[in-house]
Amino acid sequence: MAPRFTPPPAEITMLEGGYSILVFVICFILYYKLRSIYKLTEYHGLHYFSNTFLFLGLAYFLRFIVFVFTHSSQPEFDDFRNLLIFSIAFMVYSSSASILYLIYSLTWRITEIFRNEALLHSLAILLTVLSLLSRPGSTLLIQAALLVVLLFAIVLNYKKYDTERKTMLGRIYPLYILTFFFWILNLLVSFRVFIPFEFRFLVYGLSILLLLIIAHRVLKKIG
């Protein structure tokens, strides 16, 4: 008899699905609004910034797919395994591209390198391959390393372009870091690392809150 794919309990799947759809919708609204302003101005920073949310939304959606696969009873057949690997690869690629697009949006005015989108996607593919070939857990480490690079990009951006002399904490930067920090925490849940249920809810709640704060600030200005 052929092995059967058994999904996780329905209520958990619905919760995860609802959460992923909500995050995806917030990210898509942000992408759509930013894109419309980019079309009007053709300002590169807006292009990179809008793509940050396109890929972040995609990464959250793919995280849900990975969640369903990893929390299902896993029959030992190749098709299932291939689908899981394929989903993880796309999730890591989308996540890396999202962080890299944010880094680009903060640094593109400093050097021409950060205007090369082919390089960005090549890097994202390279990081995906590295994640898949390395030991389990390396995905989280690679994403955390990207977060450190993002931190450097923020410091560079602040030093070069801050004209209002606000402190770093008084600007949007902490929201960038927290959004992707919570994204990495979201990844933890996908990889079946033991996480208490209350902590999972806290992570989900705060992830949505952070995106809503960003959406509010974006829509207040250009909505």
Binding site: S105, N157, R171
Partner: peptide
């Protein structure tokens, strides 16, 4: 309309470090 919106866009670009 673009002139009116420009200031908002400029503020947005500065606020978000773009």
């Amino acid at each position: 309309k673009f002139i009116q919106k420009y200031n908002k866009i400029r503020e947005f670009i500065e606020e978000f470090g773009l």
